[in-house]
Write a protein that binds this DNA or RNA. Structure first.
Lengths: 147, 147
DNA sequence: GCTGTTGGGTTTCATGACGAGACCGAGATG
DNA sequence: CATCTCGGTCTCGTCATGAAACCCAACAGC
C-alpha cells in the first residue's frame, strides 16, 4: 500500500499506478501471463518475500485483476488467476518489456517474447490511430489534457 | 533507488522497472510528454516532494531518458527534456493510461488523450503481429521464455 | 543598499513499507 | 509418529519516502 495516494491527479495513469505501480506487482502479472498460478510458483520465479507476495496478491484480488480460486479441497489450496481486467494489462506489460528490449538489453536476443497464438508470429506493442488507421511513431503523438 | 534489485530475473521488464518502476517516475515522464520541462513545473503538476523530484530527475538523466539542458544563463537555469529513449516510453505510458481509462475510470470521458499529430485522430495502444500484420487481442497472445 | 522573489535545488528528521526469516496449521506421506 | 508441502502470518530491523526548513545566486523595486 502506498503511503500517499496520487488522488489529486485526475489522471488514469495515476490511478493505474496506484494499483500496478507498486514494487513487484507488474512482475507478478507478467509471471501470471507466463502461466504461474500458485503462491509457491510466484515465490520460485520472483525473488520476493513471502509477506510481500501475500500482500500484493491480496491487493490484486481486491482490485479485481486476479481471482483466488480453490484448485483442490482437502487440503484446501488456492490458485491465483488473472481476470479479464488483469489480462487487459498485456498491452502495457508487453510495451514496457519491449521498451526494455530496445533500450536496456545487454544481448541481442530478448529473453521473453510475446507471440500470436495460431499464426505464431512475434507480437509487438504499437500506437495506432483510430481515425486514419495507421501505426503512429512516438514523435507523431501528443498527449493532451481534455479537461 | 530501489533497495533490492531485480537482477536475478534476466527479464527486460524487470530491468525496465528498475528505472521506471519507482514511485513517481512514470508520472514525471507523462508530465514531460505533456510539455513540462522545468523543476518548478513538475512540482506544480505533481504533488511530489522536492527532494524526491530531484532524485528522480537525476536518475532519469543518469539512465539517459532525460537530458538537463540550460535554458538561460545568468542566472543559470536548467530544463529537463526527454531524450529519444525517454520518448520511446510513449507506447507504454499510453498503454497503461488507457488500461486505467477502460478499467478504473469513474467517468466516461478520460481526462487525457493521445492524439495523432496532423491527422488529429485519437491514438490507442495495441498489440500487432509482425507476421500476419493484424491487431492482436489479449486472449490471442502468449508470453514465452525464449531461454 | 535593503528587502523580497524566483528557480533550483540540499538537509534534516519521522515514519512506515519492505525484506528476511521464523513460525504456524491442515492434511498427505512414509 | 515424524516429516513434508502449501499457503500463509508474525516480528523485527532498515532504508526510501515525504514534509518542511534551509540555502544560494541573480535580479527587481524602492
Amino acid at each position: 500500500m502506498l503511503r500517499h495516494t496520487y488522488e489529486g491527479q485526475d489522471c488514469n495513469l495515476a490511478r493505474a499506478l496506484e494499483i500496478v505501480g507498486e514494487r513487484w506487482t507488474l512482475l507478478i502479472v507478467r509471471s501470471a501471463l507466463l502461466g504461474t498460478e500458485r503462491f509457491e510458483g510466484f515465490l520460485d520465479n520472483l525473488e520476493i518475500a513471502r509477506n510481500v507476495l501475500a500482500n500484493r496478491l491480496a491487493r490484486l484480488v481486491d482490485h479485481g485483476l486476479m481471482e483466488r480460486v480453490p484448485y483442490q479441497e482437502r487440503p484446501l489450496r488456492y490458485a491465483y488467476r488473472l481476470t479479464p481486467v488483469g489480462r487487459d494489462l498485456t498491452r502495457a506489460v508487453v510495451a514496457l518489456m519491449q521498451w526494455g528490449d530496445r533500450n536496456l538489453s545487454r544481448d541481442e536476443q530478448p529473453p521473453r517474447r510475446a507471440d500470436h497464438l495460431g499464426c505464431d508470429g512475434p507480437v509487438h506493442a504499437t500506437l495506432c490511430c483510430s481515425r486514419c488507421g495507421r501505426e503512429v511513431r512516438n514523435e507523431e503523438v501528443t498527449v493532451r489534457s481534455v479537461r
